[in-house]
């Protein structure tokens, strides 16, 4: 079974192997780093409450992405709030993304291809190999959204992350998202770490909106 950060990134890969535009947004980056922290919480490697994140076990097996995140968490001697870590880990977000993409390639889910943009600029694409895992993640999201039962923590959190990261638009029309809004609200982020990530993203969006308002109407 894939981890949350792997599934989130997999949902951001489009049919051409490009990472969706939304993956470059600050909201996606916060949600993606949040996915790593939630994965650590679900694996009982960290314990989270509204005041602090505490490390329970440093052993994160062979997951290079989680190893990097855990290394950062252990660099601070005093426990910090989740919001602090979401901001602090932004400095590592490119490396966290690279390590997660590599893990998906190593598992035979994506392949890494060199490509050219405008025949000159080189870029890298990550097309899915057979798409089974990506389809399965989308199917689980759809089954939860179209059903009426309480989802598993993992499915609930994946929906919340996909929603926050703007990834639902990749496989649901705007009209469908609006129609499912009530169910999305009900089943997203049924987990404390995920709820705190959602709050941090809302605060970031409000700060961006305030900054835009100030720049539009200078005093």
């Amino acid at each position: 079974m894939l981890s949350l950060h792997q599934e989130m990134l997999l949902l951001a890969v489009n049919d051409d192997g490009d990472i969706e535009f939304t993956a470059g947004t600050s909201t996606f980056r916060l949600a993606f780093v949040g996915a790593c922290l939630i994965e650590l919480a679900l694996k009982d490697k960290i314990e989270v409450d509204p005041e602090e994140v505490r490390v329970i076990s440093r052993d994160v097996d062979n997951d290079a992405t989680l190893n990097l995140v855990m290394k950062r968490l252990c660099e601070h001697s005093t426990p910090q709030r989740l919001g602090f870590w979401l901001s602090h880990l932004q400095a590592d977000v490119q490396e966290i993304t690279r390590l997660t993409l590599m893990s998906l390639c190593d598992q035979g889910i994506l392949k890494s291809e060199e490509s050219r943009f405008l025949w000159v600029l080189s870029s890298r694409k990550y097309p899915v190999i057979d798409g089974t895992e990506q389809k399965e993640a989308k199917l689980r999201i759809m089954e939860t959204l179209l059903g009426d039962s309480i989802p598993s923590t993992e499915d609930s959190v994946l929906i919340g992350l996909a929603r926050a990261g703007g990834l639902l638009e990749a496989f649901l029309s705007r009209k469908e998202i609006v129609r499912l809004e009530g169910r999305l609200e009900q089943v997203s982020n049924l987990e404390l770490t995920a709820g705190l990530v959602e709050l941090a993203i809302q605060e970031e969006q409000e700060a961006i909106a305030r900054a835009m308002l100030v720049s539009s109407y200078p005093i």
Binding site: A41, D44, E47, V48, D49, S149, I150, S152, T153, L190, E191, L192, T193
Partner: peptide, 19 residues
């Protein structure tokens, strides 16, 4: 007087089992 992310999961398991 205190519940953390780990403790809270017991309630979700309960809600699902009850459902």
């Amino acid at each position: 007087d205190y519940v953390s992310s780990a403790g809270l999961r017991a309630f979700l398991v309960g809600a699902k089992a009850a459902e």
